[in-house]
Design a protein around this nucleic acid. Structure first.
Length: 283
DNA sequence: GTCGTATCTTCGAAGAAGTT
DNA sequence: AACTTCTTCGAAGATACGAC
């Protein structure tokens, strides 16, 4: 049902647990996660974009502090939805945190929102502004749940009740997401759209409303994430090999994309790589 | 839902800077 | 010198989006 990971190193020790919810939620949620005692040696952390949506509950008293690309600090009350990002943002990690979160599948947040997901593109929004008092009630319920398993169970049961639309995807989006999984198949988007039977314009509209990103941007992010996965925990990297294997035309174009998504050169990123490939300590 | 077009991405080339 | 890593540029094609 779930697995437990204990991470520790010289500088800090933390507990990470994850839980995969049951169907039908599992079709929309990748996993729930719980962090305890996260207090890394750096005070700020670059969060790299993966196009997915994350919902975070802070279980400590403090507010959640994030920074945008202009380094402007933004405070959120105890819960925040990080919309589908194609840009990095920065998390304040100066205070030890305990938090619970939901990592949604692409387009998975859609049934739980009343507006199109693309309105959250590159945006982080306090959960209260989207769910009103229901966000506060859920936060209280999670705090009152004693064990981590209880918290996961509370979250699972409450989330089912919070869906404002049926747990169904548009068939065109389902089909496209499935097609986009196979990186080895480097067909142009127009081929995939042609198979769907909708006009290009209509398909992009539907995809954007459900996933929050344009199809092209989604594919570029998948390719970028494939690079991060490939070099995760390796000691030596041949950047040209990685670029070609992940579908880039050459190393130059790979570097350009890498910088656009992360603000770092591949070698910079590699030298700073931490426990999780989407989080990079910066100060 | 289509059409036309502006914008973006990819492809391909050339070369600078740093390292071995 | 050879090699690796990274930058810049222009052309062509693909994609996104406003108008209808």
């Amino acid at each position: 049902m779930d697995y437990k990971v204990h991470c520790s190193c010289r500088a800090y020790a933390m507990l990470l647990r994850t839980y995969i919810p049951r169907a039908p939620l599992s079709g929309f949620v990748d996993f729930f996660w719980y962090f305890e005692g996260y207090h890394p040696p750096h005070t700020r952390e670059l969060t790299l974009p993966d196009g997915s949506v994350e919902l975070v509950f802070n279980l400590n008293e403090d507010k959640i502090k994030l920074f945008d690309r202009e380094n402007k600090g933004l405070l959120y009350d105890r819960s925040v939805i990080c919309g589908p990002h194609s840009e990095y943002f920065i998390i304040d990690t100066s205070v030890e945190t305990t938090s619970l979160g939901i990592h949604f599948r692409p387009g998975g947040i859609n049934p739980f929102l009343k507006m199109p997901v693309n309105e959250l593109h590159n945006n982080n929004v306090s959960l209260d502004t989207l769910w009103g008092t229901r966000a506060h009630d859920l936060h209280e319920k999670i705090l009152l749940s004693k064990t981590v398993d209880d918290k996961f169970r509370t979250l699972e049961e409450s989330l089912m009740k919070l869906a404002s639309r049926p747990l169904i995807r548009h068939p065109a989006v389902s089909f496209a997401l499935n097609e986009f999984q196979s990186l080895s198949d480097k067909r142009p988007l127009s081929d995939v759209i042609g198979q769907i039977g909708l006009s290009q314009r209509r398909f992009i509209q539907i995809f954007k409303e459900e996933v929050g990103l344009t199809p092209k941007l989604f594919c570029r992010l998948r390719r970028f994430q494939e690079v991060l996965n490939r070099i995760d925990h390796t000691k030596i990297v041949n950047w040209l090999d990685v670029a070609i294997a992940c579908g880039y035309y050459d190393q130059m174009h790979f570097i350009k994309d890498f910088q656009a998504f992360s603000s770092l050169n591949p070698t910079d990123y590699f030298s700073r790589q931490g426990k999780h490939h989407n989080h990079v300590g910066i100060y």
